[in-house]
Structure formats: structure tokens, C-alpha cells
């Protein structure tokens, strides 16, 4: 009997002894759990990120076109050349406008879904935001190429409605106009807005779900007009969600280089500049310096968002 007990104890597998050790030493378990992801993300991802940032402090030799490996801020000075500064301002401005427009367009959808949609309709609303969110980015851009093309549906629609003059008048405006919608800033803006809109709706809806109807009723009972209720009750409560959504719309617009390349005037955005400098020009330091700008802007943005409690709405 005793023998048997000893036997089983000794036969207790290596596995179960290990399990006991891990149970007694949660630190060890934690280290085991975290090692693979830290190795992957910490070394491959953060490592290459830092390597890239480091390169922005090198410069390129104008004559040989080779990278000089000595620390300098020369590349950053190059960033402030009017042509490059233009790119930075243009991209940031576009990101701001797209974000604001996305917030305006998304609000009614999010608000309706959060407050009025029930049961089956709630699911339908949810899926009808999810499907565009997840459908292929390139297909969405392609769809807009079809829409904005000269012989495409939008021009056709304007013609059928006898409103061609309106479109032409709009296109003759400076800055936002152009030869056709597909080569104007308006076109770029529309595609950005379309592609990132679902990223705004979902966090906004999540924030609005938490606004209790009784707050709005109380506000109305106390004599607030609908616009006062919106301004003083609804909007402040939805703000964390709006900020959470804007992290996406802002960051994605800052870094995109495909949309402005396919639809828009030929003037460059940050992403295109990075792509051009690292590719044919081989000017990795300048490309790296360009990427530092969105990193800093996003870092600042995320810090602000955190202070506003936006991460709880993600």
C-alpha cells in the first residue's frame, strides 16, 4: 500500500511537478507567458522602429548619395524647407478636416444606433457599420475611382439632374476644385472620409450607449432646448468616444499614401514623401525624419486622449 503511494508520487509526471512550481511562482509563469510576445514585438517591431528613428539623425551626402553615419540635425533642417513644410502642413490639415467631417457624419448614425435602434435593428446597424469597416481598403478606394471618374456615376447623376453647371462651378473654385473630382482635393477628402468613417462610428456609438436616456430627459425637464441639451449634456458625454474615433481617422490619414496617389492632385502627402524618399531616392534619413512627424503628432494626440479618458471608450 505504502509502496504504491510512493510509486505514484514518483510517477507523478514532470508535467505536474512543473505545474506546481509555476503555481507557486506566478512570476515565473508570467515571464514564460510574456517572453515570446516581448521577443517578437519588442525586438522585431520596436527594434526596427528605433533603428528607423536613429537613421533620421544621419544625413545623406549630396555628392555620393551615400548615408553618412554621424549624428546631425541636418536632415531635420531639410524637413523645414518650404516644399517639405508644405507637405507636412497639407497632410495635417487634411487629417484635421477629415476627422471633423467624420465626426459630423458619424454622429447621427452612432446616436440613432445607440439610442433608438432595438433588437434586430440594433444588430443590423451594427453589422452595417462593421461590414464597410472590414471590407477591403483597396476595393473601397477602387469604388471611388469608379464613382469619381469623368464617365462615372457622379458626373452622370449631375447630368441627369441638369446640375452639371453646379459641378463645373464647384470645380472651378481654387484649391478645392480641379480638372475633375478625381484629381481634386475634394476627391481625396471624400475618399478619406469614406474609408475611415466606420472607425469613427463604432467608438462614438460605444460612448453614446453609456449615456442614459434619463439624463436627456432631466435636461429637457429642466427647460433646456434640444440644442442646449446637445451642447451641455450629450456632447460632453460623447466626447471620449469622439476622441477615440479621431485617433484612428487622424492617424490613418496622416500615414496613408495610397489614397492621395490614386485620387487627388499630384501634390504630395507625408506618406507619399516617405515612400518616394526611401524608394528611388534612397534617402532613408529624410524618409525617417518624415515619419518622425506623425509619430510625434500621434504621441501628443494619444497623450491628450488619455487625459480625456478616451481609452475607456475604445
Amino acid at each position: 500500500m505504502n509502496d504504491a503511494a510512493i510509486m505514484t508520487r514518483e510517477n507523478r509526471s514532470f508535467l505536474s511537478r512543473m505545474s506546481d512550481t509555476l503555481w507557486r511562482k506566478p512570476r515565473l509563469l508570467l515571464i514564460l507567458l510574456l517572453t515570446p510576445p516581448i521577443l517578437w514585438l519588442g525586438i522585431i517591431y520596436l527594434g526596427s522602429l528605433f533603428a528607423l528613428l536613429a537613421q533620421s539623425f544621419f544625413s545623406i551626402d549630396e555628392f555620393s548619395g551615400l548615408i553618412k553615419y554621424e549624428l546631425t540635425l541636418k536632415t531635420y533642417r531639410e524637413l523645414l524647407v518650404p516644399a517639405n513644410l508644405d507637405i507636412l502642413v497639407r497632410t495635417t490639415l487634411m487629417a484635421v478636416i477629415v476627422t471633423l467631417a467624420a465626426a459630423v457624419v458619424a454622429f447621427p448614425i452612432a446616436y440613432y444606433a445607440a439610442r433608438y435602434a432595438r433588437g434586430k435593428w440594433k444588430a443590423i446597424f451594427y453589422l452595417s457599420v462593421m461590414l464597410p469597416l472590414w471590407s477591403s481598403y483597396l476595393v473601397k478606394v477602387y469604388a471611388w475611382k469608379l464613382i469619381l471618374a469623368k464617365e462615372g456615376i457622379l458626373n452622370w447623376l449631375f447630368e441627369v439632374l441638369y446640375l452639371k453647371w453646379l459641378l463645373d462651378a464647384y470645380l472651378s473654385l481654387p484649391l478645392i476644385g480641379g480638372n475633375s473630382l478625381s484629381v481634386s482635393y475634394t476627391g481625396t477628402f471624400l475618399v478619406f472620409l469614406y474609408v475611415w468613417l466606420p472607425f469613427m462610428v463604432l467608438p462614438m456609438q460605444a460612448a453614446l450607449e453609456r449615456v442614459q436616456a434619463s439624463y436627456l430627459e432631466a435636461s429637457a425637464d429642466l427647460g433646456a432646448t434640444p440644442s442646449q441639451t446637445f451642447k451641455n449634456v450629450l456632447f460632453p458625454l460623447a466626447l471620449p468616444g469622439i476622441i477615440a474615433g479621431s485617433i484612428f481617422t487622424f492617424s490613418l490619414t496622416l500615414g496613408d499614401y495610397i489614397i492621395p496617389q490614386i485620387i487627388g492632385s499630384s501634390r504630395l502627402f507625408i506618406g507619399q514623401a516617405v515612400y518616394a524618399h526611401q524608394g528611388t531616392a534612397g534617402n532613408i534619413p529624410l524618409a525617417a525624419a518624415f515619419t518622425v512627424v506623425p509619430v510625434i503628432v500621434m504621441g501628443f494626440y494619444l497623450w491628450m486622449a488619455k487625459r480625456q479618458g478616451a481609452f475607456d471608450a475604445l
Binding site: S48, L52, L252, D256, G271, Q278, V295
Partner: peptide, 13 residues
């Protein structure tokens, strides 16, 4: 972070 940063960081690495 914008995808282009991940992309170019990995490429240069």
C-alpha cells in the same frame, strides 16, 4: 501608428 511607419521601419531593418 500609421502603417507606413511600421512598413518602412521593417524594410530598413
Amino acid at each position: 501608428l500609421p502603417g507606413i511607419i511600421t512598413g518602412i521601419a521593417l524594410r530598413s531593418a
